[in-house]
Design a protein around this nucleic acid. Structure first.
Lengths: 336, 336
DNA sequence: CTGAAAGCGCTTACAG
DNA sequence: CTGAAAGCGCTTACAG
């Protein structure tokens, strides 16, 4: 059915080696010959079979991005950075979605083992040291995005500092009781953000009160959903006395939280986390994560390692930035 | 460096055929032998090379989804449907992002030619009849999602009817001047939605007024962005007299539009399009597109065709549903 | 500039 | 239940 290099060689009256050279941009082919091969190939609808090429050449010119795609905007922004960084390079990008958290490690390790690509980008995937050590044994070029390890190159984000900045902002305004609209406490980003929250409290000599850490009931996507934010905010609104302010652990959750506040006609200053595009449009104060940059930089790192496998492992940590809009301010400040 | 089937065969004291059988779940291997091979493979960190497997077996067990990933939520929902549909099947899914619109066709055709997978899902990619005819010559199993053609299986959505329903809703309330917050007029979804809008007008004997079709200045992503919605709504607010209502062509645009309305303290009833998760949380009336179902159904279709290539081409069209929340209602109705 | 030939790492009838 | 061997569709020294 589909043509092979032999069909083209025969039809063009050359050897398969010559056809191969034409398709591999080799310089040493007589222009006449090249033209003829190209013409025949076009007519017969020929295109090299990537599997055979990969096998024979041991090159794939392919990078695989492994990510929990469902995490939406975050993923999209990182992807933009990756693609822009790849634009100049002779690499193609494939994406494999890593599904429900449970067997994420298995999904990733199985994919790596298959040697689809020469380099891998692991985005927002958090594994234990033991798991990462297992991965490192595959000895394949790999860069972590939004996670940190000294076994691999990584481009991560200082979650702890981001949470500190948000909490510190409120504390400096004189607020004492600051609730955290949290998510799955065992997840790495939450762990780090809670740590930053605690550090800010301690710097201001405010005792930590566990009851102020509030989680929604829905735990889909580790609780990083609108619904979970909505549920958690309703719990906060039911507290007596009301907290002075809320540090919300993601913009997505904040969308749900805002709905709860509006329904109950309550106003509590709120700062969240991520700075998704939507944050600007709903007046959300938030901690900016440079997702695009992280994707871009990680891809650069990976490609450098591809060119030079002996490079020392390098870890890059991006710094947060607090973006203040209306949601963190008092109601009268908002209205004016 | 990395082990081959020969290494394992030698270490286990069997032939490579036997190793191959073990890894292909063939039944006819003595349990003892299987155990031994598996043990050796585990120790040596062996895994079959997919490229070699694909080449030798002519099977890939792989489906490729081609989509403009940047379109965010829509893509995510469709992907969820695809993955759920694939869960029971012995297929893996890879995703290739199709970048800026300009050379989308080239990107797609190049990817198809490489024969990565045995089946392809083309999501939200709109090509001309001529282009689709070219693709059909590759003679590869392919299902269109969110597009229609009689050359391929497809699962699409009735955009025209959706726009009709939204417009009709306003007209039945007695509104006469209904603006359209539009996007790139040459894009297929916009073309169909404008058609539905016009049909509703004509059924109510309202003349079409071109000035009521308003577009933002920013044309990124064909104008389906918050920014573009914000810009367009500001233009609408500047109109004199103000339109009675606005049909907005996407939820994303509606987020920007709402910001403009709030800033200018103007209220105009608005219905948008998509029913993204966020719509529920910001009280947006909108036309629901069953994105999850479309992804799910399209994947089923594709797999059926893989099993039976002689199947007649089938086109499935999903029907819209109007979801009324607060944004389409009068201000006093909203407040109560 | 071009061709013959070995090899990439597998699968799969075929034979036993 | 197992092995020897041909073949999948390419690339790439090597020789000319």
């Amino acid at each position: 059915m589909s043509k092979t290099i032999y069909d083209i060689a025969k039809a063009a009256g050359v050897s398969i080696a010559t056809v191969s050279r034409v398709f591999n941009q080799a310089e040493n082919v007589k222009p006449q010959t090249r033209k003829k091969v190209l013409k025949v190939a076009e007519e017969m609808g020929y295109h090299p079979h990537v599997y055979a090429q990969g096998l024979a050449s041991k090159k794939k010119n392919r990078i695989l991005m492994l990510a929990p795609v469902m995490s939406n905007y975050f993923f999209t922004e990182v992807l933009r950075g990756i693609q822009d960084s790849l634009a100049e390079e002779n690499f193609e990008l494939n994406i494999v979605n890593i599904g429900r958290k449970k067997d994420a490690f298995k999904q990733v390790s199985e994919t790596l083992k298959k040697r689809w690509a020469e380099g891998y980008l692991l985005v927002s995937l958090h594994f234990s040291d033991k798991e990462l050590k297992t991965l490192s044994r595959y000895d394949t070029p790999l860069c972590l995005v939004d996670d940190f390890s000294n076994l691999f190159d990584s481009v991560s984000f200082n979650n702890e500092e981001g949470a500190f900045m948000a909490t510190d902002y409120f504390l400096k305004k004189g607020y004492k009781r600051i609730a955290v609209l949290s998510a799955d406490a065992t997840s790495i980003p939450i762990r780090d953000r809670i740590a930053g929250y605690k550090r800010a409290l301690s710097e201001h000599d405010i005792p930590f009160d566990e009851k102020l850490i509030v989680v929604g009931d829905n735990m889909e996507r580790d609780g990083f959903t609108e619904l979970s934010g909505y549920q958690a905010m309703n719990k906060i609104i039911a507290m007596d006395p009301l907290p002075d302010a809320v540090f919300c652990t993601s913009d997505t959750k904040a969308v749900g939280a805002k709905k709860a506040l509006e329904e109950q006609k309550v106003h509590i200053p709120i700062i969240s986390f991520d700075n998704l595009t939507i944050a600007e449009y709903i007046g959300l104060s938030t901690v900016n994560q440079p997702m695009y940059d992280m994707g871009f930089r990680a891809t650069n790192k990976l490609i450098q390692r591809l060119h030079n496998p002996e490079l020392r492992i390098s870890n890059e940590v991006h710094y947060p930035e607090l973006v203040i809009r209306s949601s963190s301010e008092k109601l009268n400040e908002v209205i004016t």
